[in-house]
Structure formats: structure tokens, C-alpha cells
């Protein structure tokens, strides 16, 4: 049992079950089918974005421009839908992916080839992309009546009872799990974040990997930008404002190390689920919106404290007895 609870993911899963139990005691409606459906659909975008954010964090970077990318891509496709309501959904998705990829690649070039630290680059592009949203829309909203009906309907189309958005997230979770655990490039990201010097010694190219990471983030941000706009059926300048911090928070809660090189897909998904549950449950149990912000902030801080405690170096193994204990521990 103790061994089981030592794993970060198991601890988090236990906490999630506990929290859900407590909330359900206060408000049984929380566990209704409708509520679960909402949570999954809401959680899908956060999960996808947290997963790609994890790629940046694994390589000792961060991408703060994700939400601005989502807003810009979302606004552009919404405006297109307004002008061409009959445009096919596949075309919209391809456009969103392409524009997102372009915005991400700009980050990638600045970081990988120009050599500017990720936090500086993405802080800059965050403002630039957000400013562009205002420029393309003129500050006006695009509302549900103006968008094409297929455009809005797609994310919540159901297949086997689940919305399309949930299916897309599920596929992405599987794809990123496969990438990080069973593809050469994926493992190299862990190596780069864990020990950049050692990575250089075995010939792992940081430039290519950073370019790949920030381009991938852009690609997924673009897709999520469309999904977000269509799901909430409205596009405006402040879409997803501050959402980048939620993606980082989900990673941190899920045990992804801000120092790089450590983090799992499962942890990241659980971190996102935990955040979405907190955000959805607080209104249900009648917590005022102002307290909601404070509580979610406190939860994030608590996770950071827990993380840094578990990361504190335990020291090398020098004593024979300590070595034996370690071997038994892993057996």
C-alpha cells in the first residue's frame, strides 16, 4: 500500500477520488451523467494543451503563447466561417492546424535557431498574437448566429455517446503517450531535459528537438483554438485569456518537473482532470467566484510545494547498506 502511494500518479488519483466524494456529499448532482459529460468536454481542451505544454517543460522550456495562439487561430477561423458559412469542417480544421503550426514555428525559430530563452520568446509572442486578434477582428465579437452551423456543431457531435472533442483528446493522449515512450525523438526530450550536457555527449541535437516541440505545441494550439471557439460558439479578443497558466498548473499538479526531464502523460492527464473538477465543482457547491480563483490558486501552490519537496535530492548512494536498500526497493 505504501509503495502504491509513493507514486505521484497514484497519490493524485486518490486525491481526485477523495475530492469527488466530498463534493458529491455536498451536491449529489455533481456525479450525474450530464455533469460528467460537461466535465469531460471542458477537460478535453485543457488536457490536450497541458500535454503539449508538458513537452516544452520536459525540455526545460515553457510556452506562454499557447492561449494567444488559440485566440488568434480561433478568431481567424470564426471570421472565415462568418464570410463562408458553408465551408467544410475538414477545411476549417486544416486551416486551424496550419495557422497554429505557423505561429508555433515562429516561436521555434526564435528559440532553437536564434537562441532566445523560451520564456522570453513566448512572453513576447503572447502579446503579439493577442494583439493580432484585435487587429483581425477590429475588436468585434463573432457570435453563434454569424458562424456556420457545421462549424459550431462539430466539437459536440456525438460518437458512441461521447463528444468529438473528447474523442480527439483521447486520440491525442494515446498519440503523445506513444511518442514519449515508444518513439526515439520522444525519449530524447527526456534526455535533453534531464541532462543537457550528457545529451550533447550522445549527439542529441537540441536545435531540432526544440523546433519540433514548439511547432507541435503550435499545431495543437491551433486545433484547440477552433474547438474552443466552436464549443462556446463565440469568438472575441479575450478568448482563453490566462489559459496558458492553467496548462502549466495542470503539468505541475501532475508531477511534471519544472526543472525538466521528469513527467508522465498519466500525471499530466490527472493534473488536468483535477483542475477541471475543481473549476466545475466550486460553483456547484456555491463557492463565490472570487473564492474560486483563490482556491484554485492555493491548490496550484500546494502542488508546487509537494513537487519541490519530492524533487529535493536525497543524496548519492555510497554506503553499501543504502545500495542494497535501493535495489530491494526497486525489486
Amino acid at each position: 500500500m505504501r509503495r502504491l502511494l509513493q507514486r505521484r500518479e497514484n497519490q493524485l488519483a486518490a486525491i481526485i477520488i477523495l475530492v469527488v466524494g466530498l463534493i458529491t456529499l455536498r451536491a449529489p448532482v455533481f456525479l450525474s451523467m450530464g455533469s460528467i459529460d460537461t466535465i469531460m468536454t471542458d477537460g478535453a481542451i485543457l488536457t490536450m494543451m497541458a500535454l503539449v505544454q508538458m513537452l516544452a517543460i520536459l525540455t526545460r522550456g515553457i510556452d506562454l503563447s499557447v492561449s494567444a495562439n488559440m485566440a488568434l487561430t480561433g478568431m481567424v477561423v470564426a471570421l472565415l466561417s462568418k464570410d463562408h458559412p458553408e465551408m467544410a469542417v475538414t477545411a476549417t480544421i486544416v486551416l486551424a492546424l496550419g495557422l497554429g503550426l505557423l505561429l508555433g514555428a515562429i516561436n521555434g525559430v526564435m528559440i532553437a535557431y536564434v537562441g532566445i530563452p523560451p520564456i522570453v520568446v513566448t512572453l513576447g509572442t503572447m502579446s503579439i498574437y493577442r494583439g493580432l486578434v484585435f487587429q483581425v477582428s477590429g475588436g468585434a465579437w463573432v457570435n453563434a448566429q454569424q458562424m456556420g452551423s457545421a462549424f459550431i456543431a462539430f466539437p459536440t457531435t456525438r460518437l458512441l455517446g461521447l463528444t468529438a472533442i473528447v474523442w480527439i483528446a483521447a486520440v491525442m493522449v494515446a498519440a503523445i503517450y506513444l511518442f514519449l515512450n515508444h518513439v526515439r525523438k520522444g525519449r530524447e526530450l527526456y534526455a535533453l531535459g534531464g541532462n543537457p550536457t550528457a545529451a550533447r555527449y550522445v549527439g542529441i541535437n537540441n536545435t531540432h528537438n526544440q523546433m519540433l516541440v514548439y511547432s507541435l505545441i503550435g499545431l495543437v494550439s491551433g486545433l484547440c483554438g477552433y474547438l474552443w471557439v466552436a464549443r462556446y460558439a463565440v469568438a472575441y479578443t479575450e478568448i482563453a485569456l490566462g489559459f496558458e497558466l492553467q496548462t502549466v498548473a495542470a503539468c505541475v499538479i501532475g508531477g511534471v518537473s519544472m526543472a525538466g526531464g521528469r513527467g508522465t502523460v498519466l500525471g499530466c492527464v490527472l493534473g488536468s482532470v483535477f483542475l477541471v473538477i475543481i473549476f466545475n465543482a466550486l460553483p456547484i457547491i456555491n463557492v463565490s467566484p472570487f473564492w474560486q480563483l483563490a482556491i484554485s490558486g492555493a491548490v496550484i501552490l500546494a502542488a508546487v510545494v509537494l513537487n519541490s519537496r519530492s524533487e529535493r535530492s536525497k543524496g548519492k548512494l555510497i554506503l553499501k547498506s543504502a545500495q542494497l536498500a535501493a535495489v530491494r526497493g526497486t525489486a
Binding site: 527526456y190 534526455a191 534531464g194 550528457a198
Partner: peptide
């Protein structure tokens, strides 16, 4: 085999 151990502790 390099002089400093250049390895990945988390792997």
C-alpha cells in the same frame, strides 16, 4: 567512456 559521468539519472 568519458571522464565525467555524463548520464541521465531519471532514465
Amino acid at each position: 567512456v568519458h571522464q565525467e559521468t555524463v548520464m541521465f539519472d531519471d532514465l
